[in-house]
Design a protein around this nucleic acid. Structure first.
Lengths: 386, 386
DNA sequence: AGGATTAACTCAACTCAGTTGAATTAACAA
DNA sequence: TTGTTAATTCAACTGAGTTGAGTTAATCCT
């Protein structure tokens, strides 16, 4: 049973309703509790249309009445707020050696998490493990399975054979696999596949520092260094889902140009300090380990270079860095970066800092995988019929 | 009279129809003459809905019956093709010293062009000149003013005060100006403002080598070097319309890292050869001028570096180069570039070359300005009511 | 106070546009 | 010739947003 996916489907009454429902939910999410008339003005819909949609969303448990607000004259507006428990999503991060699974609500709050070491990472084994983890997470948190909107799965890129293939991050046996279909079947849920940096970027939008932003970039410390870019609320994926491979672009270094992730990445850090885990790095940083401090001195200018490239190419509202790194170390890195003046981001009217640390912590990508699903509920789009 | 623009408007019957009309026109444009049933299948709409829309588009002159096609059994499908003259657009390129204006049809074919030297480039003077040029172009080509869909205007970026402000490309007196509103008023037409590289990218999509592509990048030789990126058919603009400032990112050079456009740009070329015009450059190239050939040797690796960055960050189907340069020189440059193997674009299953020359010629940006308008007619989007 | 004004909200009738299912037409195949 | 297939149209239907009148509950003004 393959669903025939229409690339850009036409609009009809039913699809219009779905679109407008997302619009209303997105407004309430973005602006907080709102009244019918306010949403009508913001969307260009009639009050009546918004009223009907809100009635439906309240009946289904997505929204609830949250008091009244009186602004000057006139009948006070009844406010409607988002019910975080109205929807949940599964986030999965597949690494060559481990599987991370999280269950979150609409706020991106964690309801359950789980970690598995993988000895075999073949498709069928992974799919089965995810299905079991889903069942445990639901049982443990007491979440109604009917409220589960879907699953997001983060996998190491790049996807398909490319000039970057052969890195240690690749998963064996997945090359020609339609992972989305595999997981959708195993879980009996809608599934979204993404790379780690894109998922992390979305996590910050749902529950981190990128809330309210529409155009921003995220530098992600995974195995290497990834870049997730959100433009007008949409992830930039590229023609084959491989956009954002920033780790492989050359940057200036004492010994001549080297690939960025040869300096700015966890494996560069491990080569320099011997430390592998986030905790070990945290300890080294707390003790001002000379090797670690040396790395910081090296990484800061390379990162500045990367930020300048990202700013000039994408013109984002801000650049966020995060991933599997101690927060204090990321803060130290941000503090040490001297941002290039020759950048379109160097504006007098800035409201965001040019570079900031993400706040979603170590499991950003896993929560981000769930955030991909959550985000869909708030993003109006003409979707094909099931 | 300011039209209240709703950022993401809700959907209703009227807006659905506009959306579906664009969808049908876009299909016919992309796939060539098509039958009702074929479009219905591609769009997920019912045959009846498509039939009604086609009836309307034929009545309005957008489509015309173009024979029948019989595929095996069944009633032969009546084919409908796009009438290029159904819509026209004005393209304008504002440079500090000159004004270029073009009138094109839906194919992007030129119906009239005009060039003005500018002694004064203040907003009111420019707006008045454009309005006059519009009238002359319409009169000269005999185009019905009612068929004019709008005007696209290309202006030197970056927009707003940035760390790149102060370059020679800036226009004085425009800093705080709402250029779109100014031109819309002066021309009494919908107006789109864009930077040169983005417009050029769109020109190639309407009438050049990017026809049928959805995700690609365009390196544009203007004053400096610009980058236009199209993702899923949409231009990437960034938070302030300044995305694509690739000229300012550092690349490796014999003397250490230098901004890309210090090597790959027309002013680098002028500094090296003394030649300023496209014709002069063409002559030098025809004579294998040593300075010019030296520039090629320098520019090729820098361009290779830029292409590698663009490929890894955007994962485009292809990278196109073009702009105000002799075609033979661009071809020579493309031939000389050794593309980096460490790129997500280095795939065995490629259908496009990784790097190709644009085919829209010297006035790419001016035609591209018109193409921005044309493109809207074929791109379904929920648009706010006038 | 008490009436005027303002704004949110609801009701009911209406309209637009896409859908559905039956009927028609024209090509190909046995 | 006759049956099958596929495009197209017709007419009735349905879903969803719009419109305009009416209701309710605040604030403003006298």
């Amino acid at each position: 049973m393959s669903l025939s996916v229409v690339p850009t489907p036409g609009s009809n009454a039913e699809r219009s309703r779905a679109y407008n429902r997302s619009l209303v939910l997105g407004h309430v999410r973005g602006a907080g509790a709102s009244g019918r008339a306010e949403i009508a003005r913001a969307s260009g819909l009639s009050t009546q249309a918004v009223s009907n949609i809100i009635g439906e969303l309240v009946a289904e448990g997505w929204l609830f009445e949250a008091g009244k607000r009186s602004e000057g004259r006139g009948l006070p507006a009844v406010q409607y707020a988002l019910a975080p428990a109205a929807g949940t999503a599964i986030g999965v991060e597949v690494r060559p050696d481990a599987l991370l699974v999280a269950l979150t609500d609409l706020d991106g709050s964690s309801l359950a998490t789980e970690r598995h070491s993988l000895t075999r990472a073949d498709p069928d084994t992974v799919a089965a493990l995810i299905a079991q983890a889903r069942d445990r997470a639901l049982a443990q948190s007491g979440v109604d399975p009917a409220r589960l909107l879907g699953a997001g799965v983060v996998m190491p890129g790049p996807f398909g054979a490319t000039g970057l293939t052969g890195a240690a991050s690749d998963l064996p046996g997945w090359a020609q696999m339609d992972a989305r279909a595999l997981f959708a079947e195993a879980l009996d849920l809608p599934v979204i596949i993404e790379n780690d940096a894109n998922a992390a970027a979305m996590a910050e939008r749902i529950s981190g520092v990128a809330q309210g932003l529409h155009t921003y970039a995220y530098l992600y410390f995974g195995t290497g260094l990834g870049l997730g870019v959100v433009t007008r609320g949409e992830l930039m994926r590229g023609a084959h889902g491989n956009a954002g491979e920033i780790g492989h672009i050359p940057v200036a270094h004492a010994t001549g140009p080297v690939p960025l992730e040869q300096i700015v990445s966890r494996f560069a850090l491990r080569a320099r300090t011997g430390a592998d885990s986030v905790d070990a790095l945290q300890a080294l940083h707390a003790n001002a380990d000379p090797n670690l401090m040396g790395w910081l001195d090296d990484a800061a200018p390379a990162l500045a270079n990367a930020v300048q490239i990202v700013e000039n190419l994408f013109d984002p509202e801000t650049v966020i860095i995060g991933g599997a790194m101690p927060e204090a170390l990321l803060d130290a890195l941000v503090a040490r970066v001297v941002l290039a003046p020759a950048s379109v981001a160097n504006r007098p009217d800035r409201v965001q800092p040019r570079l900031m640390r993400g706040t979603c912590g170590r499991m950003t990508a896993t929560f981000g995988a769930a955030a991909l699903v959550i985000n869909q509920a708030f993003t109006p789009r003409m979707a094909s019929p099931a």
